[in-house]
């Protein structure tokens, strides 16, 4: 696959390490979260047949973590963002 890196342009997915669903970025607030919230965060993942937001770590590149929106049925990539920029919004 080719991931269109926001800074570096098209890069082979072989340069990346897959880190899982982008939901991992939504870590519960330790002040308010219930045990169920933590359980869901640690163990439950959506497994959509279709667009999926997921984290790709450019381990063999600039070490940016990207949020890639990829259709799991076709591998079509419809969006690529820098995770740090999204997280700090």
């Amino acid at each position: 696959m080719i991931i269109n890196h926001p800074l570096l342009g098209p890069r082979d997915s072989a340069e990346f390490v897959y880190l899982g669903a982008a939901a991992l970025m939504d870590r519960p607030d330790p002040e308010t979260a219930s045990a169920e919230d933590w359980h869901d965060y640690a163990y439950l993942r959506d497994n959509p047949a279709g667009p999926h937001r997921e984290l790709w770590f450019h381990e063999g590149g600039d070490r940016s973590i990207l949020i890639v929106t990829r259709d799991t049925t076709t591998h079509e990539i419809t969006g690529v963002e820098l995770a740090r920029e999204v997280a700090s919004k």
Partner: peptide, 18 residues
């Protein structure tokens, strides 16, 4: 070594972006 470095990047970029 590689895995910890990766984990630290995840925390830095995704959980503590500021």
């Amino acid at each position: 070594a590689g895995r910890v470095y990766q984990h630290m990047e995840f925390v830095r970029q995704c959980l503590m972006p500021e």
